[in-house]
Design a protein around this nucleic acid. Structure first.
Length: 417
RNA sequence: GGAGGGGUGGCCGAGCGGUCAAUGGCAGCAGACUGUAAAUCUGCCGACGGAAGUCUACGUAGGUUCAAAUCCUACCCCCUCCA
């Protein structure tokens, strides 16, 4: 592969964002010529995004940092269909109100990563419901349907895999590909968008959009995909005990977000630093080179940098400090997830198991008791010896808090409130 | 429309009248070992209850039986082949 001259491609390739590109040379030239508008579509199936979408978000950030214009396309229209890529089952259909609420939540996340505005490299956000909702079926089929053949559509993984596994694929979902291709065409026309980026599972959808642009408008458009990010041991990113690792703080406290990154596997540290932080590559190389237990220092940097981007510098520093106190001094810290309990209730006494459930450290009473039986539960750093233990006001420590721990890594504070 | 196969716990997948809260695998949680890592080993892994036990669960609704995930009926959904 030849050297890329544009800052954009060098940055994307060097930092590990590239999986496939429809035309590297061409894209390189385009990027050298001036600001390029590139978009990524995000579904509005939930009111927050999780770590699984972070590569895509960072992809847009890298674009902006390289002087180009990122375009966030919210799938207000396509969400009503559901992308069949990588899934065996149809999504349940969402109502318009649900989708509107989800879009509002997602919008806030992007403000952290991108600068929106009217300048040449300012990010913009669009919603494909604006053009999809009003589509007239017959004109649409006549104008665009003729550019797609079933023969070709059936060869795309999103469709092929589903059929091979003998899983149902509805006509509704089958159309997703066409609509996403049409999105690209609309964005090219409306916002001079020439590039679509996405995860590697989007390749088929993206290629269709590139081809539609060429066939309908004779426009040269580009597609670029990022690799599917898994951990070294092969697991998909973004799941923990508590569920998904959400980017929204309402869904996941800063401390737990920081902890997620702190617990990165050794082999992933360098790759994640390149993908998920803005640290210069030479600094990443130094951190990555740390051996043995020293790699932990690199993990702390990773955690703090990623958290700073997503949640703000102050939140990141506080989480780091709390972690230091909890893990290196065996104490507790302000930023641990905290629940409140009424003074009167505590005076009366509360069963430990119930407290663990309320603190979110166990999903049910039974689970909390099993945790205790297994020796994994601690109260103020002392093992809970009995499932029947009652927690009372005496258990408050000098700072007026009770520290609950499930295993060595999950902690929570109970305060009187 | 016809014929055949199938719908089981977060997922995959056994069970095919009682011993089934349901084998096994994956995922998850905890313990040991470590470096808040990985790998490995051990235990746990529906809810409520101190326990005995009670409840909820095998597509949906009924039925047969002392007893049903397992049999019958109807319905819904999926797959394959035929028209």
């Amino acid at each position: 592969m030849t050297e890329h001259r544009s800052l954009l491609l060098r940055s994307l390739v060097d930092r590990g964002f590239m999986h496939q590109c429809t035309d590297l040379e061409g894209l390189d030239k385009l990027a050298l010529a001036g600001p390029v508008t590139g978009y990524i579509g995000f579904d509005a199936t939930g009111d927050s995004l999780h770590v699984g979408s972070l590569v895509q978000i960072m992809l847009l950030r890298r674009m902006q940092l390289a002087g180009h214009r990122p375009l966030v396309l919210l799938g207000g229209g396509t969400t009503k269909i559901g992308d069949p890529s990588g899934k065996d089952e149809s999504r349940k259909l969402l109502s318009d109100e649900d989708i509107a609420r989800n879009i509002a939540g997602i919008r806030r996340i992007f403000d952290r990563y991108l600068t929106f505005g009217d300048g040449p490299s300012d990010a913009v956000m669009m919603n494909n419901a604006d053009w999809l909702d009003g589509l007239a079926y017959i004109p649409f089929l006549r104008d665009y349907g003729q550019h797609f053949t079933l023969n070709r559509m059936l060869t795309f993984d999103s469709v092929k895999l589903r059929l091979e596994r003998e899983q149902p694929l509805t006509f509704l979902e089958f159309n997703y590909m066409i609509l996403q291709a049409y999105d690209f065409l609309e964005l090219a026309r409306r916002a001079d968008c020439r590039l679509q980026l996405g995860g590697s599972d989007q390749w088929g959808n993206i290629v269709n959009g590139v081809e539609l642009n060429r066939r309908v408008d004779g426009r040269e458009a580009f597609g670029f995909t990022s690799p599917l990010i898994t951990t070294s041991s092969g697991a998909k990113m973004g799941k923990t005990a508590a569920g998904a690792v959400w980017l929204n703080e309402e869904r996941l406290p800063h401390f737990e977000f920081w902890q997620y990154w702190r617990n990165t596997e050794d082999g992933d540290v360098g790759r994640f630093l390149r993908l998920f932080t803005d640290l210069p590559l030479d600094q990443v190389a130094r951190l990555e080179a740390l051996g043995g237990a020293e790699i932990n220092e690199a993990k702390k940097v990773l955690a703090t940098e990623v958290t700073a981007l997503c949640r703000g510098r102050a939140a990141a520093e506080e989480a780091a400090e709390t972690a230091r106190r909890v893990f290196e001094e065996g104490g507790s810290g302000e930023a641990l997830p905290t629940i409140e309990i009424a003074a009167a209730e505590l005076a009366q006494g509360v069963p430990v198991a119930e407290l663990f459930v309320r603190a979110g450290l166990a999903a049910s009473n039974g689970e909390a008791k099993r945790l205790i039986k297994g020796g994994g539960a601690r109260l103020n750093d002392k093992p809970v010896d009995s499932e029947q233990r009652i927690v009372k006001s005496d258990d408050l420590d000098a700072h007026g808090a009770i520290k609950l721990s499930a295993g060595r890594k999950r902690h929570a504070l109970v305060r009187v409130g």
